[in-house]
Write a protein that binds this DNA or RNA. Sequence first.
DNA 1: AGGATTTGACCTTG
DNA 2: CAAGGTCAAATCCT
Length: 235
Amino acid sequence: MQVISKLEPTSPSSTSSTITPKSSKDLKQSIIKLLVNGKESANQLRNLFDQRLGFKAEDDDHQHVFDHHSWVILNSIESCISMVKSYDFDQQEISNKKRKVDQISDDQCSDHHSPKSEETVDGKMSKERRGCYKRRRNCQSWSIEATSLIDDGYAWRKYGQKEILNTEYPRNYYRCTHKTDQNCQATKQVQQISSNPTKYNIIYNGQHTCKNLHKNPSIIIDDSSLDENPSFIEL
DNA sequence: AGGATTTGACCTTG
DNA sequence: CAAGGTCAAATCCT
């Protein structure tokens, strides 16, 4: 029988409200600590259910729902930990300051959309000059390694694929589906890791500014109590 | 028909 | 100038 260690209670009042990080490093450590606590609690809760409750045959639906949600919780927390660990808070502070300056020139570019676009005499857009776009520099980004292409809850649309030097697998480029209708600037890059093809390196760029028009979860249960406690974690 | 993907060209950055 | 990020026409899929 699996031994379940007892964890110190980590109620919101005893954790998040009392933490006042003095630096980016403190903040990072605090977030990781909270996530690790949450992960351990979720793991133990799952073990507890497996051992103590069990499921009867007629409870198959409930078991599937439980399996699904516990899996989502664990994966979400695991992803958050990876993101926070790889996120450079100090660099981000510098980037945020710099971005304010860059924003001015970026806005000028986007305001007159396609200033370089020219029409040929026959009315067609010249293929020589496309719209003015800028590669986003210093935008908020973080990366994770995943053993599978987890559903992070957002709707992504592939817009490119590129062979990358010295890598075995191409890099795939995705943008938020709501880029056009809600001007959401979030993008992500997915690339299989050469040394370990079972894993994917996923780089997220920018925050979602679109409304939570998440894809429906694969399993839907009729429980109004969940409405105020969605199982996905805002990334 | 309309949305998603593919893919070659364009564009920025170092 | 090379590498890589993005665009957009062509194509695919439902």
